[in-house]
Amino acid sequence: MPSIAAYEFPDFVETAAFVKDQPVFAIADGSVRFPAGGERVVEAHPGGLLSARYDPYGRRLLTGGEDGRVVSVDGGGAAREIASIGRKWIAAVAGGPRDTVGFASGRTAYVRLSGGALKEIRHERTVEDIAFAPKGIRAATARYDGASLFFPATDAAPAALEWKGAHLGIDFSPDGRFLVTIMQENALHGWRIDDGKHMKMTGYPAKVKDWSWSAKGKFLATSGAPAAILWPFSGKDGPMGKAPLELGTRGDTMVTAVACHPAEDMLAIGYGDGMILAVRFADSKEALLRRGGASPVRTMAWSGEGRLIAFGSESGEAGVIDIAG
């Protein structure tokens, strides 16, 4: 039976991650917590934290706050200011190859290149999210009516990928062939980067608020339904014309968080009532990891070796699950 080391934080958990095998939690009050082995607290943003994301390239946690600062926190708990743009809210952060860091504030996307230069890419509408392609220094932003693709090390104008509506989240597929956005409506949208061909992923009863790519990028798992919805991306056309997998179906609550295992075809699923399941892709076999809690699961992450799961909820409940017991 899985075992849980439970924690309680003073505000909702924005992001749970493992940084060099240490479970780390970014909290909305502006702190980053290292609870294992005696709690260490890093005061990253005293005025409040707005965004946090694990940087797989730099193996660190990146955070953005109401203080206009972007901070990196390493596995030892050392915090370093990456950028500061005055009293502006940092709505999104992302790490890229070669020590590149991107972030968004208002109508501007910023990219700090490895040499320290800070590039500004202005948009006509608010930049909601930013992501980096897995190879080369190429970035994409989510905005109203589509996405923008650009090479921040050059002065070339961004390429526009248009689709009507508000796009709130963005990510590249692990092989770099596709770009996908989370929309304000109950849908995802995607483009095949080579030719701009559209991919519509609809049918959700609620907004998608979390997603996770499976090992080798075969599937994109998403929240927003009473089951985890997994869109297939292994073929040249991605999910176009294909039905998604549905895992962990429950009739009385919604999936609110998803995290794919780093090596195996297995998914951790968090629900609105705090329950967490692990489900195998091949046969839909389920294992109960957590019975429930006081609020929806907001964020989950696997450790590098795939034995531990860190999770956090909207009420500040959190923990680390050892699936081996």
Rank of each mutant, 00 (worst) to 15 (best):
A157P: 05
L161K: 01
A109M: 06
V111W: 00
E120L: 13
V258D: 01
P56Q: 08
I321W: 00
L220I: 02
M199N: 00
A187G: 06
T126Y: 11
M300H: 03
E66G: 07
S31D: 12
T256D: 04
L277R: 11
A28S: 15
A52C: 10
K236Q: 14
P232K: 09
K88A: 14
V279C: 07
P97V: 09
K242E: 10
A324R: 15
A52S: 13
A26R: 06
R98Q: 15
T15N: 11
A318F: 00
G65I: 00
I321N: 00
P262N: 06
P10T: 13
H189D: 04
H189S: 09
I269W: 00
G64N: 05
A91Q: 11
G306Y: 03
E43Y: 05
A318T: 02
R177C: 08
V258T: 07
D265V: 10
G169C: 02
S114H: 07
A131R: 01
G270M: 02
G251C: 01
A221L: 05
G304D: 15
R33W: 02
A227C: 12
G65H: 00
Y144H: 13
V297G: 02
A268P: 10
A6V: 11
M266T: 15
K207M: 14
T154L: 14
G76K: 15
R60I: 09
S72F: 00
A282M: 14
C260P: 09
Y54S: 08
E162G: 08
L50H: 04
T100M: 04
H189C: 12
A16N: 06
A131D: 07
T15P: 08
Y204K: 12
E43T: 13
G37N: 15
G106K: 12
I90S: 04
S72H: 00
G270K: 02
W231I: 04
L161F: 14
F132W: 03
Y204V: 07
P205V: 11
L289H: 07
G30D: 11
S214R: 02
S234H: 14
R290E: 05
G217M: 04
E124T: 12
A5G: 11
G169R: 13
I85K: 11
A268F: 04
R98C: 05
G272S: 08
E43W: 03
A221E: 01
G146M: 11
F150G: 03
S105E: 01
R112T: 07
M1C: 09
Y54V: 03
S284C: 08
T63S: 12
A263S: 14
F178W: 04
A294G: 12
A6Y: 03
G306A: 07
M201H: 11
G169D: 07
C260I: 03
G316S: 07
R280F: 10
R33S: 04
Q22R: 15
R291H: 06
R250I: 09
I269V: 14
W211P: 04
G115F: 00
G106S: 10
G102L: 00
P226R: 08
L118W: 00
L247S: 06
V255T: 13
W191S: 00
Y144V: 14
L308Q: 13
V279N: 02
H45A: 10
G203S: 15
A287Q: 15
